[in-house]
């Protein structure tokens, strides 16, 4: 797909909860420096895919590779140290800590920085993500949108090589969404590879060069964003248009 070296891949990964197959023989590759978008209906298994990559969930079958190494059995904290930074769709802030301290956890542990280096890193990330005015505010008193911003900032504080963003644009105004897209473009331009799950498609396509569609845990479409959005499979999922009806 891309000429660049592959940094992350999933090879035929499956995961079931009882009879429910949430991930079904899913394979994907992410090139170094690439930005990949993921869309699909609610409950399609997109967040589970992130859990499989970041290590919160162990697959029943298949393997996950990062930077050429098999990381399938690696615990989440080691994957973070290796360079996988993730945000949660439902924010998990450290509520009793300030925004600045939230980032420090990532910089000190995931980023393995000294105290002084960690301060520099966190101030830079706070500045980049627009959270600097909130630095000393307890994370528990942030609004939902600020919490989502914090999720991204905290993942960035670990200095990731791959950034996993899970639905962070929902609920933003047009202007906020525009500034978020600019921030993510900057992160991407600095060399970080990105996988972004998002329902706000116009924000997504402003950043990503490739799109995959997931439904019932399986990848059903993949390719250049415009072509994917116009494909029959996407139209069927999002518009409920049967292919046969459309042809008739």
């Amino acid at each position: 797909m891309t000429a660049a070296k592959t940094i992350l891949s999933m090879d035929m990964v499956s995961k079931s909860y009882g009879a429910l197959k949430v991930t079904d023989a899913l394979s994907l590759t992410l090139g170094e420096g690439e930005a990949l978008g993921v869309i699909g209906p609610n409950g399609a298994g997109k967040s589970t895919m992130f859990n499989l990559i970041a290590g919160g969930v162990a697959p029943d079958e298949g393997k996950v590779f990062f930077d050429g190494k098999d990381i399938t059995g690696m615990p989440p904290f080691e994957r973070c140290k290796a360079g996988i930074g993730r945000s949660y769709q439902i924010p998990h802030p450290f509520e009793g800590m300030t925004v600045f301290e939230n980032l420090l956890v990532g910089a000190r542990f995931g980023g393995d920085l000294s105290e002084a280096q960690a301060y520099d890193r966190c101030v830079a990330v706070l500045d980049q993500t627009g959270l600097l005015p909130k630095a000393n505010v307890r994370a528990g008193s942030l609004t939902l949108l600020e919490r989502k911003r914090l999720e991204m900032a905290r993942a960035l504080s670990t200095n990731p090589r791959v950034l996993l963003l899970d639905e962070i644009a929902g609920g933003l105004t047009e202007q906020e969404c525009h500034s978020l897209v600019e921030t993510i473009q900057q992160i991407h331009a600095s060399g970080t590879s990105i996988i972004w799950i998002e329902h706000i498609v116009h924000a997504l396509v402003a950043v990503v060069s490739r799109l995959i569609v997931i439904n019932f845990g399986a990848k059903i479409e993949e390719g250049e964003p415009k072509a994917v959005m116009e494909s029959a499979a996407v139209r069927e999922i999002y518009m409920g248009i049967e292919v046969d009806d459309a042809a008739a």
Partner: peptide
């Protein structure tokens, strides 16, 4: 930092590099 983070959210601590 790690202890306070674990108190507030164990999964988030783990995904930020805390054993």
């Amino acid at each position: 930092l790690a202890l306070t983070a674990i108190r507030d959210s164990e999964p988030a601590s783990e995904s930020l590099g805390v054993n």
